[in-house]
Structures are given as structure tokens and as C-alpha cells.
């Protein structure tokens, strides 16, 4: 039965175009349509725009000059929130190589379990247009690490921030070109939220209640102030 249902559907779809075009011809037609134009950026500067959109997505963000500063920032965050230095993180070589002792942070490398309060991901990309970060599922970042904990902390390198969603896919194509396609590619833009009751926004629906992004690299402090609207743009 299953095969006949499939065949019948394909036959019906083919009825619509009696002379099927060559794949190359279809690809050419698609190429002439091109891509969409991206959303207007809140700031001219790429990183200021990214920061502004992370904040608009109800995330929190801080800047860290290097990995040492990032570790210390994580340590401060964990202590303030949970009076602990425990953290779960994926087996990402970049995370393994971080100077954890400097921040007094005690990461457990692996997949998040129901009791884990905080998880850390090293994002592949940041997208300025939407204030999203991109992760791939796998040993380096198990899918559940993005979803189960109360707090999701994300490191993103300054140089991995791209302008638009199309730019993000151009990078993803390169990263996935060599190896196998990951099981899941996740664009995350904020803590999980719902407005299903009384159309009132509540953070922490089924996923994390808090989403903290640390932008790693030499970003001037005024970018954060500008993104917050505390300082006029230069």
C-alpha cells in the first residue's frame, strides 16, 4: 500500500508539469530568484547590532577579552546565581582547553542530566540580524545541553559573528561540507518563553529560564553601552 500511495502522489505532482525540467535548469531558475534581503540592523556596527538583538531577545550579555576572562565571567555568574561552581559542558576541544582553574569553575564534560542547573555551549556562530547563536548537536554540544538546564551559558567568538541568516548558512555549508551533516542545527535566540496564558510573556517555559551570552574577543566596552542605548552611536 505504502509504495502505491507514494507513486500516486508523485504521479499527481508530475501531472502539473508535463515536461519535467532538467535539474540544472531548475537550479538556474532558482538562482535567478536569489535570496531575500535581511532585516534592518539596529546598529551599523556588526557586534553592537548582535549585542542589541541578544538583549532584545531577553538574553543577558557580557564581554570577555579572552578565554581567561571568559572563565572568570562564568565563575562569577555561577557563584552569583547558584553559589556553586558546577557546570556541564559538551566535549568541545575549545572548552577542554580553557583555563578553568583561573575562574574556579568545575565543569563536567558530557550530556546534561535532569539535575544540572547550568550548561555551557561554545557556539559555532552568532547572527547579528536576529541575535541568535548557532550550535550543532554532537559530542561537542549534546542537544539536551541547550534545553534541560535552568541557565544556558553560551560563548561566542567575536570573529564568528556574521551579519545575516544567509551569511550564517554560507558558513554552515562550509563547516558541514567536509564531514557528515549533524543531527541537529539549532539557532537559539533567548531563554525559552511562552505567551500561551493571557498572551503574557513568561521566560522559562520548557527550556532554560535564563540565557547568558559571553562575547569573546576584543570588543570595546562602549559597544555594550551603545547596544543598551546608554551611549549614542559614534
Amino acid at each position: 500500500m505504502a509504495e502505491s500511495v507514494r507513486a500516486a502522489l508523485f504521479a499527481r505532482l508530475r501531472e502539473r508539469s508535463p515536461a519535467p525540467a532538467e535539474p540544472a535548469e531548475i537550479a538556474r531558475a532558482l538562482a535567478t530568484i536569489g535570496y531575500a534581503t535581511a532585516a534592518r540592523m539596529p546598529h551599523a556596527d556588526l557586534h553592537t547590532a548582535f549585542i542589541a538583538n541578544v538583549l532584545a531577545n531577553k538574553g543577558t550579555l557580557e564581554l570577555a577579552l579572552d578565554r581567561g576572562a571568559a572563565v572568570r565571567a562564568i565563575g562569577r555568574y555561577l557563584y552569583k546565581r547558584f553559589r556553586t561552581h558546577k557546570l556541564v559542558a559538551g566535549n568541545d576541544p575549545r572548552l577542554a582547553a580553557m583555563p578553568w582553574r583561573d575562574g574556579g569553575v568545575l565543569p563536567r564534560f558530557g550530556a546534561a542530566e535532569p539535575g544540572d542547573a547550568a550548561a555551557l555551549s561554545y557556539a559555532r556562530l552568532g547572527v547579528a540580524e536576529t541575535g541568535a547563536i548557532v550550535t550543532f548537536t554532537g559530542r561537542a554540544n549534546p542537544g539536551r545541553n541547550n534545553l534541560l538546564p535552568e541557565d544556558h551559558l553560551v560563548l561566542v567568538n567575536r570573529e564568528d559573528v556574521v551579519a545575516t541568516l544567509e551569511d550564517a548558512w554560507a558558513k554552515i555549508r562550509i563547516e558541514t561540507g567536509a564531514g557528515a551533516w549533524p543531527r541537529g542545527i539549532q539557532f537559539i535566540a533567548g531563554p525559552s518563553s511562552t505567551a500561551d496564558v493571557e498572551a503574557q510573556l513568561v521566560l522559562g517555559a520548557h527550556g532554560p529560564c535564563r540565557w547568558h551570552v559571553i562575547l569573546v574577543g576584543d570588543t570595546p566596552a562602549q559597544a555594550l553601552e551603545q547596544a543598551r542605548g546608554e551611549l549614542p552611536e559614534a
Partner: peptide, 24 residues
């Protein structure tokens, strides 16, 4: 739908657990 500029989660799923996966 909601007047957002991006939903919290936009995911692309390709299939079952890969060799590199520890969950899924």
C-alpha cells in the same frame, strides 16, 4: 505570528543519532 524578530528555537533536524552524538 507574534511580532518577534526571531523565535527562541529554530532547529533543523536531519535524522537519527550519528556516530558523534551522545543523545537524540
Amino acid at each position: 505570528a507574534t511580532g518577534q524578530s526571531h523565535t527562541c528555537y529554530t532547529s533543523f533536524y536531519s535524522g537519527p543519532r550519528r556516530e558523534d552524538d551522545v543523545d537524540g
